[in-house]
Design a protein around this nucleic acid. Sequence first.
DNA 1: GATTTTATGTCAGCGATGTTGACTTTCCAA
DNA 2: TTGGAAAGTCAACATCGCTGACATAAAATC
Lengths: 169, 169
Amino acid sequence: MDGPGQEAQGGESLLFLTDEQLRKGIEAMFFAYRAFTADPDRILEKYEYGRAHHRALHFINRQPGLTVSTLLAVLGVTKQSLNRVLRTLISDGLVEVRVGKRDKRERNLYLTERGKELERELSEAQRARMRAAYRAAGPAAVAGFRQVLEAMMDPELRRHYLALRDEEA
Amino acid sequence: MDGPGQEAQGGESLLFLTDEQLRKGIEAMFFAYRAFTADPDRILEKYEYGRAHHRALHFINRQPGLTVSTLLAVLGVTKQSLNRVLRTLISDGLVEVRVGKRDKRERNLYLTERGKELERELSEAQRARMRAAYRAAGPAAVAGFRQVLEAMMDPELRRHYLALRDEEA
DNA sequence: GATTTTATGTCAGCGATGTTGACTTTCCAA
DNA sequence: TTGGAAAGTCAACATCGCTGACATAAAATC
């Protein structure tokens, strides 16, 4: 049922590091990521937004009050690129900007009610797919899934990922 | 070592389907995918190619002789979009086109030696990261990783994914 | 044999999202 | 008070998706 795997450490089963296995993993990432973004993309079209808007909404929702520069670091895009997106979200009333308390140069970002609504709609679609996949694969598989993805991240990105993780605890 | 998981079916451990868990999965996909494409992207820059070229090279390499329409289906883009990419790859001598044997309307695509070289360079970078992640996570995690990704795919994309899988066996 | 369908290629134009570079304003901190 | 950090903006550009329209060749069907 499980194929090879249990005897991991043994040294014998390094079969999972085959070029073929690695290529399968690469393709799995490609196809899965396409599916992963497909549902929100369909919703975004209705509102004339794009994937970049979704990402901004997601992280502002996750970390209300985060600064522009933090968001820049998390998203890994340039200030100019983010600003285009942020400007439309703000003027459409989905994102609210407040001047920083300690440091008045900083801008803290928050979702408005409307922003939260859209975020919920988008992420619910994405979560539905995730939930189905998780349920189909089971908890052990899910743990492995997360382990591999984490190991794949650049250390700096992993820091951001883990930061989000900890805040909720 | 394994956290919760073994008692999967029991009903108790549905904790892995929490909204929080799902959001973590979503973020893991986002950050990991960024890392996943970063290495090839750096290489592609040198040659003035983009991610789209990489994808075409990858699948032509995987299935030498595949037709344009198959490649279209696999990549999930429009003819016009693919053609732009394919045209440069052909005129740069990385891809070779042969008229179909049975059906002369079809064009079968192959990598030239130079095409294979670039494909190798790109995929080696990607495989190196994958290998490191696989090694760090271990075979059981890798199996779970693949299971979840497969479950996440759209059925039609999964067909393409599985087709590639079988050909090598 | 004439017609329709399929596979491919191409032109033109558009939109989203990334980039670099240059410059401004505001404000903290040394 | 001066230097640098945080943010915003303008301009220009590249990649890579898209739609729509049209052309050609070959297969398939009537």
